[in-house]
């Protein structure tokens, strides 16, 4: 028992499970305790379940679907843009452009929304492009650091096998690092997922989880808000898990 308080101590599987269950118990207990009494901080579990049921009846599944669709459309466009710039960043002429794109992540959201609103009239398209602009900057940042961290030996190895520079780019950077791209998407997904909800609630549009949050805010319905937060968290974690699973499943050599 003393072992679980010792730094760097290796513990067995059962102890691990025991510790996890202990923490879950603590969380649930805290929730119950803090939702008792008059001025409670959290809604009680019953209220949350009730909120969840309400949400379900209002078409929660459709809203999740809508959010996922928005998310994937944006990711696909953004990853294509970022990949092109990151791969081409190995060319001296393109490198400054790629670096600049990555720096744009410090731009505030409002400025971008303003200009996109002038260019695009359709709300859905606009949502997608706000996300695309944002994600491209973050994805490019991660992809650039992926390209930069490839050891010189790998380039030398390809060159010593008679690859010309374009083949080196193709073999070492593009083909040799596909699994990293999936991981980059996965790591940036958290930002996107957070942004997605914001983007959906800023713009009046075709539903989605952000729309639901905005709606619940209005009624000050605590149960609903917490239920939604949990749903969003769980869906986000699920995507994370699926991407990691895909990477490991498709790329046996992938040990990141």
């Amino acid at each position: 028992m003393k072992n679980i308080l010792t730094p760097f101590e290796k513990i067995n599987k059962n102890t691990k499970l025991f510790i996890s269950l202990g923490w879950v118990f603590v969380v649930v207990l805290t929730w119950y305790l803090s939702s008792m009494g008059e001025r409670h901080l959290f809604p009680s579990p019953q209220q949350v379940f009730q909120g969840l049921a309400e949400l379900y009846n209002e078409g929660l599944v459709v809203h999740i679907g809508s959010s996922l669709l928005l998310c994937f459309s944006a990711i696909i466009i953004a990853i294509i843009i970022s990949l092109i710039f990151s791969y081409l960043s190995t060319i001296p002429l393109v490198q400054p452009v790629a670096k600049a794109l990555s720096k744009l992540r410090y731009l505030p959201l409002t400025g971008i929304t303003f200009y996109l609103a002038i260019l695009i009239s359709d709300a859905r398209t606009m949502q997608i492009w706000v996300l695309v602009v944002f994600m491209s900057t973050y994805l490019t940042t991660s992809l650039l650091s992926m390209v930069n961290s490839i050891p010189q030996e790998e380039f030398d190895h390809a060159r010593s096998l008679g690859c010309n520079r374009w083949e080196v780019l193709w073999e070492v950077v593009v083909k040799g690092r596909i699994d990293y791209v999936i991981d980059v998407i996965r790591q940036n997904l958290a930002i996107v997922w957070m942004m997605l909800v914001t983007v959906e609630s800023i713009l009046v549009a075709a539903g989605g989880l952000g729309f639901l949050i905005k709606n619940s805010d209005k009624f000050m319905n605590h149960g609903r808000i917490i239920a939604l937060q949990i749903v969003i968290l769980v869906v986000g974690l699920l995507i994370d898990f699926v991407l990691d699973y895909l990477r490991k499943g498709f790329f046996r050599y992938s040990k990141i």
């Binding site: 030996e153 790998e154 030398d156 190895h157 060159r159 010593s160 096998l161 008679g162 596909i178």
Partner: peptide, 17 residues
């Protein structure tokens, strides 16, 4: 010219994929 002489580096680098 690169590719004329075979080169095996200290870490025995290969294509990871």
């Amino acid at each position: 010219h690169e590719g004329d002489i075979g080169f095996v580096d200290q870490k025995y680098t290969l294509f990871r994929n």
